[in-house]
C-alpha cells in the first residue's frame, strides 16, 4: 500500500473509511464524549463559516452587484438597479470580451494538449532514476516557485522588441509583446513553462507511488515499456490523472498574472479574469460591469465543476 494518501494505486484494497459525524448513526455517536462532540462541531463550523463568509457571500454579492451600475462610491442604499444591461453591454458593445473568451479557450487547449502531456512525459523520464534527477526536478519546478514579478521581468528581458534576448540573438525584430497575433503565443510559452514544472512534480509523485510489482508482472508477461505504461501504469494512476486534469482546467480559467504583468490584459492578451480586474479594481471602479464579467466567469467555472463532480460521484457510487 502506498504511503501517499492521494494515490490509491491498488484499488483492491479499500480506502480507509472516513470517520464523519453523520456516518455513524445513533449508537456510534454516543461513543463520543461531550468534548469530542464539541471539538467536532467546532471543526465543522469554523471552516464552514469561513467558506460562507469568504467564498459564498462575495460570490453572491458579485452576482447581485452585476445587476447594478454601482461605481464603488457612496452608500449601498444608493445603488441603482439596471437589470441585465451589464450583460447585454458585455456581449454586444464591449470589444475585448470575445477575444477574452477565445484566449481563455486557447489557453485551456494549449495547456491541455501541449504543456500537461509534456509535463507528464518529463515525469515519466525522471522516474527512470537518471543521474542528477533531483537537479532536473529542481530546475523544472523552479518556475512554479519564482515570484510573479520576477517571472514578468525575466520574460520582459527575453521578449522586449528593441532590447530583448530573442531578437538580439536571432537578429529579428518581431514585436513579441506588442503584435496581437504573436503575443498570445509568446505568453503561452511562458505560461506553459510554469505549468510543465507543476504537472511534472504532481505526476512524478504519483508515479513513485505505483506498486512496482505491477511493472514486474507486466515485464514477466513480456510487455514493452510503452505498453506497460499505457496499459498498466496509466490506468492505475487514475486519481492522479483526474487531479492533473482539474489542475489544468483551473490554471487556464484563472490565468491572469502573466498577462497582467505584461500589459494589463490588453491588445491581444485579453483574458476574462484580466477584464474583471481592469473594471473592478483600480480607478475605473465599474463595479457593476466588472461583476457581470465575474459572474460569467463563475458560470463557466460551474460547468467544469458540474462535470467534474458528476464524474467523481458516479465513480464513488460504483
Amino acid at each position: 500500500m502506498s504511503d501517499l494518501p492521494l494515490v490509491q494505486a491498488d484499488r483492491a484494497v479499500p480506502p480507509p473509511v472516513a470517520t464523519t459525524t453523520t456516518g455513524g448513526r445513533g449508537r456510534r455517536l454516543r461513543l463520543l464524549s461531550r468534548t469530542d462532540r464539541v471539538v467536532i462541531a467546532l471543526m465543522v463550523l469554523v471552516p464552514l463559516l469561513l467558506v460562507v463568509a469568504l467564498v459564498w457571500l462575495p460570490a453572491l454579492a458579485t452576482v447581485a452587484l452585476s445587476a447594478t451600475d454601482w461605481d464603488g462610491i457612496g452608500p449601498v442604499s444608493e445603488i441603482e438597479f439596471v437589470g441585465g444591461r451589464n450583460y447585454s453591454d458585455v456581449v454586444n458593445i464591449y470589444p475585448p470580451f470575445v477575444p477574452a473568451v477565445q484566449n481563455n479557450l486557447l489557453w485551456l487547449a494549449a495547456l491541455f494538449v501541449v504543456a500537461t502531456p509534456f509535463g507528464m512525459f518529463l515525469a515519466v523520464l525522471l522516474d527512470k532514476e537518471l543521474r542528477g534527477t533531483r537537479f532536473y526536478q529542481t530546475a523544472l519546478y523552479l518556475p512554479v516557485v519564482l515570484s510573479l514579478a520576477l517571472i514578468g521581468f525575466v520574460w520582459q528581458l527575453i521578449y522586449s522588441r528593441d532590447q530583448g534576448l530573442l531578437n538580439g540573438v536571432f537578429g529579428s525584430d518581431v514585436d513579441w509583446y506588442g503584435d496581437p497575433d504573436v503575443n498570445i503565443w509568446a505568453v503561452l510559452v511562458a505560461a506553459g513553462w510554469r505549468h510543465v514544472g507543476y504537472i511534472m512534480l504532481l505526476y512524478l509523485a504519483g508515479l513513485k507511488g505505483v506498486d512496482p510489482s505491477l511493472r514486474e508482472a507486466a515485464a514477466v508477461d513480456g510487455a514493452s515499456e510503452t505498453s506497460t505504461f499505457f496499459r498498466v501504469v496509466f490506468p492505475v494512476m487514475r486519481p492522479i490523472n483526474i487531479i492533473v486534469l482539474v489542475v489544468t482546467v483551473i490554471e487556464s480559467l484563472r490565468a491572469f498574472d502573466l498577462v497582467w504583468v505584461i500589459n494589463k490584459g490588453r491588445n491581444g492578451l485579453e483574458l476574462i479574469s484580466a477584464l474583471v480586474t481592469a473594471n473592478v479594481v483600480g480607478e475605473a471602479s465599474r463595479i457593476g460591469f466588472g461583476s457581470a464579467l465575474a459572474t460569467i466567469m463563475l458560470v463557466v467555472s460551474l460547468v467544469f465543476i458540474t462535470v467534474y463532480l458528476a464524474t467523481v460521484m458516479r465513480e464513488d457510487r460504483r
Partner: peptide, 28 residues
C-alpha cells in the same frame, strides 16, 4: 516527493475550483 505535493492539492478538487471562480468576486 510525497512531501513535495502541495498540501492544497488534496483539497483542490472542487473547493479550489469554486474558490478560484469566486475569488474574482472576493476582489470586491
Amino acid at each position: 516527493l510525497a512531501r513535495l505535493v502541495p498540501p492544497s492539492v488534496a483539497g483542490l478538487r472542487r473547493r479550489s475550483l469554486l474558490a478560484g471562480a469566486a475569488g474574482s468576486g472576493a476582489l470586491l
